[in-house]
Amino acid sequence: MDNANRPSFERDLDASLSRGREVPVVGFAERVVTAVRADRHRRKLIRWSSFATAAAACVVTILLVQSPSEETLNRQTVALVAREESTQLADLLGIVDDLSLLAPVAEKSSIVDVLATPGS
């Protein structure tokens, strides 16, 4: 084939590509609508599940905030023990207080004076 008879490159390029310009697919629109419905349903499920997860997280947080922590429990236990001990101590001190009534009434300074006086 000589150059004069060779088909035009540009013409063939146009013709070849334009043959593939439109490729209609039978039933494609229906397939797309089905796929879009499935996608819509899936996204709705994802939205709801993420909402449910967030709500559950909120409930757990509220429960955690409301229930006393280990530290608080420890503090409360210590306070209870301390109150019990203080009651026992108060009882004991109450006896001591009663005994204090029997203690001799003497001033420290007068005893010192007596001891310091020569020949006493």
């Binding site: 593939g20 310009r21 439109e22 490729v23 209609p24 697919v25 629109a29 229906e30 797309v32 609508v33």
Partner: peptide
């Protein structure tokens, strides 16, 4: 959507 797909799909697939 069906109508839009019908209009544009052949060129898109091409």
């Amino acid at each position: 959507l069906r109508l839009l797909v019908h209009r544009h799909h052949a060129r898109l697939v091409g």
